[in-house]
Amino acid sequence: MEDNIDQLYADIQRGNENTIAKAISMVEDGTKDAVKLMKKVYRNIEPAYLVGISGPPGSGKSTITQSIVQLWRKENIKVAIIAIDPTSHFSGGALLGDRIRMDKISTDRGVFIRSMATRGSLGGLNSSIYDTVLIFSLAGYEYIIIETVGVGQNEIDIVKLADTTIFVTVPEAGDEIQAYKAGLMEAGDIFVVNKADRPKSEQMVLTIEQLVSFRGDKEIWKPPVLATNALQDEGITDIKKSINDHHIYLEEKDLLQKNRREVIRAQMINLMEKKLNEKFISPILKDQKFFKHIELICKKKEDPYSVVNELLSL
């Protein structure tokens, strides 16, 4: 068995696409072999530089991702993309459509695109996302982009994994931007107003500049607000340069390692929650007794607080 894992590890390191893809599926499905593989990966691999791209649906995240990747590819840099879409709470299924806008890079041998569903069954971040980052790092990808739709706590947790987080919006977002203030607005390192050929883009740039200028510390990174038109490839070099500047800033201030410790902390919490769910909560949910308690609570014969204590033997 250990030989198999060593072989798997070596094949990933050699960049075999079939193996990389299978390994990611194993991690997603949480197989025993995946755990063995990841134990070895965590002990040997430094993560590649991780860029998060987030923003509302239709703001141009995938198009921007494609254009940045094309610039990196001109320098022969290998890039992996993890395109994340939400899992339906109703059916458990997901529609993963980010590849549609990444047509120009889909056959480039130096680019690996993987679509993933959030899957987070009982809340919390899907721990396989960061494991996938490490698998790509093992395979020699120098930059990894995580793309998510910018809504909800889950997505904010995903962007927090990134070394540099790009938040994309459009001129028409208008007042909607207020809603992001307490969420992604705080997590962004670079802001992009895409489709800037449309009216009111300058106004949008100003609004965001004002919002981010309220961030306390003067010494810290001041997020640039960039106007782009991704379909025409306008402003993409500015994004690439800003990613680079932010990377240098993190290195100089010794923040890269600090961020990564935060990521490991979050990953630890995820794994603990996952274990607790598996060991304690899931079996209860499947037990007939659980449904009986629900009935009794609805009939006012019991209350949830007492039942929870009883079920968890607290």
Binding site: G92, A94, G97
Partner: peptide, 14 residues
């Protein structure tokens, strides 16, 4: 869409 509703993860490439 139908497969998604049936609980599958569907990649559509355009």
């Amino acid at each position: 869409r139908g497969l998604k509703e049936a609980g599958m993860e569907v990649v559509y490439t355009g």
